[in-house]
Design a protein around this nucleic acid. Structure first.
Lengths: 210, 210
DNA sequence: CCAGAAACCTGGACTGGGTACAAGTTCTTA
DNA sequence: TAAGAACTTGTACCCAGTCCAGGTTTCTGG
């Protein structure tokens, strides 16, 4: 209800002020590597770019690359540290008044907005190189653990089977939306897809399609 | 309706009679590699066994290993050619009288029975080495494409979004069952889990838990 | 039954992801 | 400003996966 609270925090303090030189350099390096990598990959395709290429083009050693990203794929799918912060804010939002599935839809839409920027590129990569994982599970993997924890926290009835089912189904719906979205369509359309898939999956797929 | 048809075919002809020497040797080699691999892996763990180990212990070259299995993981998750046949029979069963979701449940239960033998081992491996993919998606990957095709064939209304959603959600339910099953429990219990998860997911997760 | 074709197996060489480590460099902090 | 923590780098290594040339085995038709 109070509008002034949560979201302003991350914007209000510039971070660069509170971060030491070390941290600032690290963030900068992270972003340099990431953007260099995305540039190379979107140009040549995922498989045609080696980690060595990326490291070299970023002015950094192979070893350092792997100290920033746990794998080559991570450079495509990991979140910017600031986005991670926003994602955590999203999950920390204590509006427990909504029923689980609706709250879950809200969170998913928020997540979708976080992904907005990189999603078109990712979709293009999916199409180019199917090795980049069937469907868009990679994208979800980055959020999965947090989200599952969030669900189980809200899920007071304590049945872990049901919790897991809710989680897996929500991911399935979200993946479906990613899968079905055409990057040439508007982003609004993607949000609608997310909403629709979650509504459908939540309402029950056993009924004949409405 | 006619009970005499489909399933007896694969048992009636012993295959070894109709297969040439070449094919028989191939099947034999496949099985030798597979069982050798499973023995080694269940003993030492997935990561502690290299493809070279497996090939060597199977009396075959590394190159040959990769001509039978597209990846190291495949040796754990791929189906025996005969099982593949049974899986295809399952999907070919022309009982289109049931509504989609119920037919899907039937297929899933049949699939579960096909997996019965190796499932306990696979679950143990999941626990040992989380790198072997979070959740049990690998298991599903082997069936995914076929299943999706089956769904879209039955799904006459022709909305690809809905088809994908049904498919992803069914997989989610199936994975959940695999994930939740304790290999010390009876296999019957696993079947129940599969049924429950599909029923729940099909009936709609947005409602408060029944 | 046999010769040629086709399928199969093999060792070896190569690419590229990922890890371990020791030595050097840069920032922090007291 | 000096000690120490954190970061970077090159090197060496392991292993999955691919490619290929040459040798064997099975199959086929005559």
């Amino acid at each position: 209800m109070t509008r002034a609270g949560t979201s302003s925090l991350s914007e209000r303090c510039p971070l660069s002020a509170v971060m030491g030189l070390r941290e600032r350099k690290k963030l900068e390096a992270w972003r340099t590597i990431r953007s260099t990598a995305l540039a190379l990959i979107s140009e040549r395709g995922f498989d045609a770019v080696s980690v060595e290429d990326i490291a070299g083009a970023s002015g950094v050693s192979r070893t350092t690359f792997f100290s920033y990203f746990p794998s080559k794929e991570a450079v495509v799918f990991d979140l910017d540290p600031l986005e991670v912060q926003r994602w955590r804010d999203l999950l920390a939002d204590p509006r427990s008044d909504l029923p689980l599935w609706e709250a879950l839809t809200d969170v998913s839409l928020g997540l979708a907005r976080l992904l907005a920027e990189r999603l078109p590129l990712q979709k293009r990569l999916f199409e180019q190189s199917p090795e980049l994982c069937t469907s868009s599970r990679n994208t979800c993997d980055a959020f999965g653990p947090d989200l599952k924890e969030w669900i189980s926290r809200r899920h007071t009835d304590g049945d872990p089977l049901h919790t897991t089912l809710v989680y897996n189904t929500a991911l399935a719906a979200f993946s479906t939306a990613i899968e079905a979205w055409d990057p040439d369509d508007s982003f609004e359309h993607f949000l609608e897809l997310v909403r629709d898939c979650l509504r459908w999956a939540g309402a029950g797929l056993a009924h004949p399609v409405s």
